[in-house]
Nucleic acid binder design. Structure first.
Lengths: 212, 212
DNA sequence: CAGGCATGTGAACACTGTAAACATAACCTC
DNA sequence: GAGGTTATGTTTACAGTGTTCACATGCCTG
């Protein structure tokens, strides 16, 4: 990757993380690089390709948070550490999380590049693998790992998006606790009876039923 | 509500549903209304206020799909009919669904208007009520209705968004079936043992475990 | 040294949201 | 009915957007 293209990409990431998608413009990017806007087009074929590379960087950052869980020694540890990494990433880098799951039209393209789409599927595949190995050691009930992983992923994704969009007003710590409890409750539905007991303890602790 | 403002809003909804947010411009809107762009500013104080009204229309359409479930006679029927309405709405009107949950910055504002934020909370509250009455009749285990509703809502929301963004490539029918199974499996974790049995039947039918 | 290539700039085009100045028609009061 | 006010539109204009074209510069190679 040529040096100048790399510099542009670095500035693009910085600009996006600062201003978000609506504030991201080729002219601002050019100014940050120290160059005029048309010069960018020598290195990038349009804004959408710059953004595509930003998305790729986002996935790379994501992997740094989640993949280290693979170093843990048991399936259950790998699962929970990965979940922790997932949440940490989403909360510490909301803009990166958002752009990973942005619709193509929002990035100015009709379809996502194939490799990015594959990265998205890779996220799914990762969770399928975590689920499958938990089934193999008898922590999760035997079932379709794809569906189970999908259910869990969708739950986490939905909670994070609703939180980011301010649908439940609470601070990060409170949300984190809610996220864990909610995840544990959902997981207990998939767990074998022996493991479900341990999970119960997680979310049954302050079982005050508030009136809303 | 003045007649002309109403016409503008109608055209705005039509334009948004056709082109999506990136294709939505005040000049196109003006042309559709049959007027020049600055004329719109006599009736709307800027693009963001037009979009805010479009969001309000989206919520109204949403309610038409979901609230008729309240006519059913038992909590469980109300719950499932509402869920069906929710999914139908999201699949038949993806653009309306998307704009309901769009972040404020995407609509060009720093914060959502209070009434729109309240509508979002209303969606949550509706599900809390459905969950609570299912607990009261002994279909769901006694627990915090807020948390339980949140878990279910986040799951549904996440699945729909991931589907809309093309993360699992399947047609609508296939997704609908997946959605129902996934929802039933999750729900069985919250169900009382007597009710969990019925749910098992829903998602256990074709329990082929495909290799992915 | 000459030529070619990589890389930049400036000007321009078609858009965007929005504001200011101006026009017109409806209506209300004297 | 005359005059003034108000509602509603248009024209023009400005700043900003993505992008393209024509041109300039400098470096590397033959």
């Amino acid at each position: 990757m040529p040096a100048q293209r790399e510099r542009i990409l670095a500035c693009a990431c910085e600009l996006y993380l600062e201003t978000g998608l609506p504030g991201f413009s080729m002219r601002k990017l050019a100014k940050n690089v120290g160059v005029t806007a048309p010069a960018l087009y020598r290195h990038y074929d349009g804004k959408e390709n710059v953004l595509a590379d930003v998305v790729r960087e986002a996935y790379q950052a994501y992997q740094g948070y989640v993949y280290r869980a693979l170093q843990a020694s048991t399936p259950i540890e790998r699962f929970f550490q990965a979940g922790e990494g997932y949440l940490d990433f989403a909360l510490e880098h909301p803009r990166w999380y958002k752009i990973m799951f942005s619709s193509p039209e929002r990035l100015g393209m009709k379809e996502l590049p194939d490799d990015i789409e594959a990265m998205g599927c890779g996220v799914h595949q990762f969770w399928i693998d975590r689920v499958r190995e938990c089934m193999q050691v008898g922590i999760l009930k035997e079932a379709d790992p794809l569906q189970t992983a999908l259910t869990m992923w969708a739950h986490a994704h939905g909670m994070i998006l609703l939180y980011h969009q301010g649908f439940f007003p609470m601070d990060r710590e409170e949300f984190q606790s809610l996220f864990e409890k909610s995840g544990a409750r959902m997981m207990s539905g998939f767990a074998t009876s022996s493991f479900a007991g341990q999970l119960e303890e997680l979310y049954m602790e302050d079982q005050t039923v508030p009136q809303v």
